[in-house]
Amino acid sequence: MGITVQNVTGNTAMVIWPKMASCTDSFYSVMYHPNWNSVLSSYSRKSFQKEERVPASRSSFVVENLTPLTTYIVCVTCQSANPSSDQCRVFNTLERDPASTSNTKKELALGIWLTSSVLLLIIAAILLYGCLHLLCRRRHERLQGQNRTTEEDQGKVWTKTTAYALGELGRQSQMMQDTEEKHPGDIQLATIIANPSACKEPVTLASQSREQAPARGQCPVIN
């Protein structure tokens, strides 16, 4: 079985083999292992590090993720059978491909950039949350201060109103006392009129003409 290995690089190699009639309705097994030595000369399937199954319609396969500057053995069999020496081929990988090195560096830089971006977004979200929390707290404190000021103003207005009402009441009481001192007779007559029961007893008014007091139960007419 003429197996050939082409397009070998530091990380990949293309394995080509002729089609087998016994694998028409089955699959091919591509097995490879690094650092081949006499210990693995038995060609047992268990001795190989990697094994890939390829559809029977294909006759080539690209082996990837190889180690640069390493000797590999690759074997191709039908239906995972143990390979023979004519079904295997030994090849050496090259130095690391400059393109793959560049791609690795790009992937590393991209990973660092993505990580940094995620960290910056997290920090920005934390700062934004802190600012919003501080603004809400200051607004709440300002509203509480306004409410306290309004309550104090209402208390002052109520105190002033009460003091004014008490002052007015005191002035009216003083005016009534002054009126009683100046016109005691008028207050007594007003009291008599306000209390009709006082008219049940005869009242004799002392005067120069000594007029007869009104009859019992009658009230004098006061002009």
Rank of each mutant, 00 (worst) to 15 (best):
G2T: 09
T9W: 15
N11P: 00
A13N: 05
V15K: 13
V15S: 06
P18W: 09
K19W: 05
K19S: 10
M20S: 09
S22I: 09
C23Y: 05
T24C: 02
T24F: 09
D25E: 13
D25F: 13
S26K: 03
M31C: 11
H33P: 01
N35K: 12
N35V: 05
N35I: 06
W36K: 05
N37P: 03
N37D: 14
N37H: 10
S38I: 03
V39E: 07
V39W: 09
L40A: 04
S41I: 01
S41Y: 03
S42N: 09
R45W: 03
R45T: 11
K46Q: 00
K46N: 00
Q49D: 03
E51S: 15
E51N: 14
E52V: 15
R53M: 08
A56W: 04
R58N: 12
S59T: 15
S60H: 14
S60C: 10
V62I: 15
V62L: 15
N65V: 08
L69G: 02
T70G: 01
T70Y: 03
T71I: 12
Y72N: 06
I73T: 11
V74S: 01
V74G: 00
S80M: 11
P83Y: 14
S84K: 11
S84R: 09
S84P: 00
S85W: 06
Q87V: 02
V90N: 01
V90C: 01
F91H: 03
T93I: 06
P98W: 11
P98Y: 11
A99Y: 02
K106H: 02
E107I: 04
E107S: 10
L108T: 00
L108M: 02
A109V: 05
I112L: 15
L114E: 07
L114N: 03
S116E: 12
S117M: 13
L120Q: 04
L120A: 10
L121A: 07
I122N: 00
A124Y: 09
I126D: 02
G130K: 10
L132S: 08
H133F: 04
H133W: 07
R137W: 08
R138T: 08
L143K: 15
L143E: 14
Q144V: 08
R148V: 01
T149E: 04
E151G: 00
E151R: 07
E151V: 05
D153I: 14
D153K: 14
Q154D: 02
K156I: 05
A163I: 13
A163M: 12
A163R: 12
Y164M: 10
A165Y: 11
A165Q: 13
G167A: 10
E168K: 14
E168P: 04
G170Y: 12
Q172S: 07
Q172K: 14
Q177W: 06
Q177P: 02
Q177E: 07
D178M: 04
T179L: 12
T179Y: 10
T179K: 10
E180A: 08
K182E: 06
H183E: 05
H183R: 09
I187W: 11
I187Q: 06
Q188W: 12
L189H: 06
T191D: 03
I192T: 07
I193R: 13
I193A: 13
P196I: 15
S197F: 12
A198M: 15
K200M: 07
P202Y: 13
V203K: 06
L205Q: 06
Q208N: 05
R210F: 04
R210G: 00
E211D: 02
R216V: 07
G217R: 02
P220T: 14
I222Y: 14
I222Q: 08
I222C: 09
